[in-house]
Design a protein around this nucleic acid. Structure first.
Length: 452
RNA sequence: GUGGCUAUAGCUCAGUUGGUUAGAGCACUAGAUUGUGAUUCUAGGGGUCGCGGGUUCGAGUCCCGUUAGCCACCCCA
């Protein structure tokens, strides 16, 4: 009974993951960028509880979300559930607090959500969403801002090849109405939405199964496959919506949105009209948006959103129209990793300071403090191990530079700054003046950064 | 939730029609080398063969179950 104690197997639940430093650093970088972009448009942060009363979450009544909901009874016998997106809690939040917040209200919310669905590449049971929404206004400016935020966000993350696909629900419902299939709109849109994954012939077969006549099938498929120059697509849509008032409004909205995008200086081709985009969620009523990595279109949308008429109708009588989108950071990270775009850094510091000689510990501590005071993050190795070993650690963790100051350097009033990538060292004369040393290191690090 | 494929060391993988004590490369630790990431050499640590049953004299290998990962459906970030 001494050594036979059985160990608990360390493991995580299906669809739930640990995040090691390399991945967690990349994730935090993106979160920082998202925070910066959201704030640059005036969005403010909020937070809500992970756990909500079950009735809040099931209110929307879709059996699909009901099936995916993590639910249980808490110790007080209350029926509760984990949030499966950030929109529903936000709706509840608005119903409770909009009185003191006032409208229009712009918030961002970055937090984990949970869905008990089957896992796949880029799809997990616990993942993070980075939502931003503007509520309490129907202004087209808010729609435009949503597109601009998504664009700025993906650009700031450093993705070079991405496409934002936009559409307007009113265009779709106008066309469906003209075609006389408005009663089957959900089924029809769901089928059309599969274009790109399923062949046009396959979609046509699905449409036929929903009782759509041959000429209407041709018309719808033609509509959904419209692509290319936005002006041409808009002209084609004009014809398709015919006399439908709703449809014409939608096309006009898309037209002015694209004008605004252009006026704001977004490069051509980044935002395109894709009439097949419908979005599964049925609360969207105006513009809808999805965005894709050009090199990995099968990954799915990494940032999606749209306009809705009434966010919180289930919880308050006050009408709250809004527009917003959500960045799926975990899917994005999975995509960037697959493309080899994630930096292999395992350190948050910029400088590795070799622990050469413990007799100089006081000097090392003084230098490290001065560097940090000057805004240079520095990691000081805790043990005076062999220099080669220490440099190996620094290289493996991806430090851009290492600072080597041994007894000789202290005696001569010098230091070696080693550029890890080129393996070259620069000698710094600092004559025992820490300010001189810090300044020199600062400019060297700038040079290294610029050189990358 | 349904169906298909997969699982051997930290990583990538060998392991024959079932047959001694399950191997390699890389990585890791220590040393050769008392001040610089390489190379070379030496030594070393590390495996309940995902887990649990079954068949068999004998299972990493065959059968069943289960867990996890990947893929398709569904839906979505």
């Amino acid at each position: 009974m001494t050594e036979s104690r059985s160990l608990i197997e360390p493991r995580t639940l299906k669809g739930f993951r640990d995040h090691l430093p390399a991945q967690a650093l990349a994730r935090e970088n993106i979160l920082d960028i998202a925070r910066g972009v959201y704030r640059s448009y005036g969005f403010v942060p909020i937070d809500t509880p992970a756990l909500e009363y079950l009735e809040i979450l099931t209110g929307k009544g879709s059996d699909e979300t009901d099936k995916q909901l993590y639910r249980f009874q808490d110790h007080g016998g209350r029926d509760v559930g984990l949030r499966f997106d950030l929109t529903v809690p936000f709706a509840r939040f608005c119903a409770q607090h909009i009185g003191v917040l006032g409208t229009p209200f712009k918030r961002y919310h970055m937090a984990a959500v949970w869905r008990g669905e089957n896992t796949q590449r880029g799809r997990y049971r616990e993942f993070m969403q980075c939502d931003f929404d503007t509520i309490g206004t129907t202004s087209p400016v808010a729609d435009l801002e949503m597109v601009l935020v998504v664009h700025d966000l993906l650009a700031a993350i450093g993705i070079e090849a991405f496409t934002i696909r936009i559409n307007d629900r009113r265009v779709l419902s106008g066309i469906l109405h003209e075609c006389g299939v408005a009663d089957r709109s959900t089924d029809v849109l769901r089928s059309l939405d599969k274009l790109g994954k399923v062949t046009p012939a396959g979609v046509a077969a699905e449409l036929e199964a929903h009782g759509v006549s041959a000429d209407v099938r041709t018309k719808l498929l033609g509509m959904a496959q419209l692509a290319g120059d936005p002006a041409t697509v808009l002209a084609a849509l004009d014809g398709l919506v015919g006399s439908s008032e709703t449809g014409r409004t939608g096309v006009a909205a898309l037209r002015s949105l694209l004008d605004g995008v252009q006026q704001a200086g977004v490069p051509e081709g980044r935002v395109v009209i894709d009439p097949s985009i419908a979005r599964g969620l049925d609360y969207y009523t105006g513009i809808v948006l999805e965005s894709f990595l050009d090199e990995l279109p099968t990954l799915g949308s990494i940032c999606s959103g749209g306009r809705y008429d009434n966010l919180a109708g289930l919880y308050t009588k006050q009408a709250l129209p809004g527009v917003g989108a959500s960045l799926g950071i975990d899917r994005l990270l999975a995509g960037l990793e697959e493309l080899g775009r994630l930096p292999a850094k395992e350190t948050a510091a910029e400088l590795f300071m070799v622990h050469f000689d413990t007799a100089h510990l006081a000097d090392y501590l003084k230098i490290a403090a001065a560097l940090r005071g000057a805004g240079i993050p520095v990691e000081f190795y805790p043990e005076a191990k062999r220099v080669g070993q220490q440099l190996k650690v620094a290289a493996k963790k991806g430090f851009p530079a290492a600072l080597v100051i041994g007894s000789d350097e202290f005696a001569a009033g010098t230091a070696q700054l080693k550029h890890m990538h080129s393996q070259q060292s620069v000698t710094i004369d600092w004559h025992g003046d820490v300010h001189v040393l810090v300044d020199a290191i600062h400019s060297q690090l700038q040079a290294i950064k610029a050189g990358q």
